[in-house]
Design a protein around this nucleic acid. Sequence first.
DNA 1: TATAATATTTGAAACAATTTAACAGTGTTA
DNA 2: TAACACTGTTAAATTGTTTCAAATATTATA
Lengths: 335, 335
Amino acid sequence: MAHNKNNKPPGRVTLRHVAKESGVSVATVSYVLNDTGSVGDKVKEQVRSAINRLGYTPNLSAQAIRTGRTKTIGIIIPDLKNPFFPELAQSVESAARDSGFAVFLIDTQESAEAEAEGVYTFIKHGVEGIVWCPSSEKDCFKKYAGTIPVVVIDRPLPNYDTVYSDYNKGGKLLAEYLLSEGHRKIGLISGPQTIESAAQRRKGFLEEIGTQAEIIWEVENPFSIKLCPEAVSELKKQDVSVIVAGNDMIAIGAIKILNQLKINVPDSVSVVGFDDVPWSDIVHPPLTTIRQPLSELGKEAVNLLLRRIDNLNASKKTVILDVQLVVRDSVFSLK
Amino acid sequence: MAHNKNNKPPGRVTLRHVAKESGVSVATVSYVLNDTGSVGDKVKEQVRSAINRLGYTPNLSAQAIRTGRTKTIGIIIPDLKNPFFPELAQSVESAARDSGFAVFLIDTQESAEAEAEGVYTFIKHGVEGIVWCPSSEKDCFKKYAGTIPVVVIDRPLPNYDTVYSDYNKGGKLLAEYLLSEGHRKIGLISGPQTIESAAQRRKGFLEEIGTQAEIIWEVENPFSIKLCPEAVSELKKQDVSVIVAGNDMIAIGAIKILNQLKINVPDSVSVVGFDDVPWSDIVHPPLTTIRQPLSELGKEAVNLLLRRIDNLNASKKTVILDVQLVVRDSVFSLK
DNA sequence: TATAATATTTGAAACAATTTAACAGTGTTA
DNA sequence: TAACACTGTTAAATTGTTTCAAATATTATA
């Protein structure tokens, strides 16, 4: 009974256990694991078999202390319920995993305090870098400026690597398309103009429209499916041939209201969105919109982050990804 | 020049730096941080000020080695693009955060290998427990059975704590409602019957229907918006007054097909779903369905997990959460 | 066969934190 | 004044891993 080789040692199996089991030193086991140093073939085999037998798993916390690297990154998401973010999170996680990094996730639910707290948590856990989708205007990294690699998604910020979509071009593509379909009277429900991405798509759109069509009315609305009363009352006027929404959420909100008002989309009025969220081809009518390359965005963010992890003093880099027009059934052709 | 007190030490600030800066020993600093031991008030103040001055952040990796606790858990999600999961992930993360745990996320994209790999990654990082939304039939924890706390969401499994919704009752609620609205000829597009949650909702539904209505046809379909050809051909027959879908995705897929066939929903045929995904009140017509308490599910999962982290040998526990009928506009009343 | 050159293997020192036992001071009490 | 209980502090041990330098074993060369 005293002789129980097969019993797993209590607690976690460590290098030391493996060393004892295979009759070599701890250092040798480490060399085998990392394929460093020079270890004889038979010893290698012994060690490997002991590892399997005992079910040894490296302790990354200990590694982290020794090497200074945790092989983890963090991602800060404003709200997973917003259909814009799941795909982003997915692609960040997947790209990080491909590079051997595990991902901490924090969903701030749009709270600036949660953002700041989250950053602190990440740093305590020693993340090597952070992908940040900002929700508030606050820069929650001020305290750590230049200390930890950060990549911002969706917003150009002076002190950070950034990746976002070519919103300006997206606006232009929409304008071009609507003009080509004969639309000349336009209603605008823009997103909040304090948000850079909303401002850029509006700017691009207006530039391309120029004097070729008329903006009959314009209201600002949060990036939400709920429309403000002003927007609703503009919709009632029926004095435009197309409604250009700041994003798909707003567009879907507008369609819902129009349905309630028994105004047919797109026969009586057309609607376009922006983002191509997964819902946009499920709603009725399927939405004509601008596709952002969400998963590219995530991948690219991880690229930038790895680059900066590699060299904290690398020059600042901004990546702008191409967008494309997705034509579905929410625009009526007036030609 | 040699005297540069204000220079941040290179690399990360450690307890040792703080100790030197405030002129006490490392242990004293630790006592101040953890509020253990007995430390004089003035010393406490000195130490606190040094901490702020240097911007010290505890190193959780080091803590983990010493204490054996990482204060992290992992969550395994099959696919964030599936609208069922983001809210779940959100609530798990939020509940975990409330209990002082950080959350590692892995999105397996429905791959069994990714699942197994993910578990290994989690264990390497020393997570104290794992919330598992299984995608495959495989039990990726076999190797670690009884070693690490695991809570399964959405599927009763013999060896794990589990939390899921009362699918059986959901099925009954739907049946009851449809009967009360006068429906007597039913088409069923069930989810995969190998999946427990799909089987249970079907069972509950059929039990409640009993002999009060007739199941004209039934096909099995993956939990996806894409319908199999058999399902499509059944839809064409127009021999039922309501289509009962295995979940909202299937229901939305059916609505799309019916739209294409110019069959009006709900005037010509009614449709009901299951899950109440965020899309379900955006599609046209808004879907009558069964609401699962997604965020409760997440919270409860974390509860179970913490319980088991506290005591690995606790008795197995299953939590079944209540569901409720959400009546919208996709069912026509035949009374 | 002895020696040099190379190939393996090992012990011990880090790494950043927590914990323990021990120690020097003070103050109280017999 | 010795004995005792406190308080505040410290040095040393511990955790799992990597890595350096030293020690040992093996092979090749003279």
